[in-house]
């Protein structure tokens, strides 16, 4: 049992990563990775929401009518996101201002629906909780890697602090504006997938 739980938690971090293997949540991975800070906050919020909605759906899994299960999942996720955003507005206003549209974007994040449908509908609450945490962190990991590269090369900063020293600029170094554009995130995710497949040959498609 403990072993299986560990698997639920660890698998999605790398071997079965939601972004690079399941190819879920790509849309938001493009939108929030121009800077490191929103990427981290988005990753954490998604982790919390996936875990919570996984538990709720897992508790309800035997009562949900099959024909409207997607709608039920959607309502649970939307209600959770709304509540979290209201709580943030009341108790952590600065964070909620920073997140602005991203918090609403969580509802449309495919990872949520994907995990609810694929895992929480069949598994017990605790397993589902671990699965949610694992997938959320796996998502956050990719976001952070992409955002790290994009912010460093695109703005010469990390978390808003200058990293590239001034003498580099004086000698003709320039920030790569392309890095800040959404297509670059897709290319970086592509590179990560490339590396990932090279390391895990059994995932390669023939």
């Amino acid at each position: 049992m403990a072993n299986k739980n560990n698997e639920a938690l660890k698998q999605p971090l790398w071997l079965n990563n939601p972004v690079v293997v399941q190819i879920l949540g790509i849309c938001s991975a493009l939108a929030v990775t121009a800077k490191l800070e929103p990427a981290i906050v988005m990753g954490l919020s998604v982790t919390i929401i996936v875990a919570m909605s996984n538990v709720i759906i897992s508790l309800l899994r035997n009562t949900i009518p099959n024909r409207i299960r997607i709608i039920v999942q959607l309502v649970v996720v939307a209600a959770l996101v709304t509540i979290v955003s209201e709580i943030l507005k009341a108790f952590a206003y600065d964070v909620s201002v920073q997140l602005s549209v991203y918090i609403g974007l969580i509802i449309t994040n495919c990872i949520l629906m994907g995990r609810l449908e694929a895992f929480a509908m069949q598994n017990k609450p605790w397993d589902s909780f671990l699965d949610g945490i694992g997938n959320g962190l796996g998502y956050a990991l990719i976001l952070v890697i992409v955002a790290f590269v994009r912010e460093l090369l695109g703005s010469g900063e990390l978390m808003g602090f200058k990293i590239i020293p001034d003498w580099c600029y004086a000698h003709g170094y320039m920030n790569n504006g392309l890095m800040l554009m959404p297509p670059m995130a897709l290319i970086l995710v592509g590179c990560i997938i490339w590396y990932h497949r090279a390391k895990n040959p059994d995932l390669q498609e023939k």
Partner: peptide, 20 residues
């Protein structure tokens, strides 16, 4: 099921929003 769920969620959201 759908009706009960929607009513519960609606009350929950109204409650949270009013309290905060």
């Amino acid at each position: 099921y759908a009706a009960v769920m929607v009513i519960i969620v609606a009350f929950l959201l109204v409650f949270v929003s009013q309290v905060l």
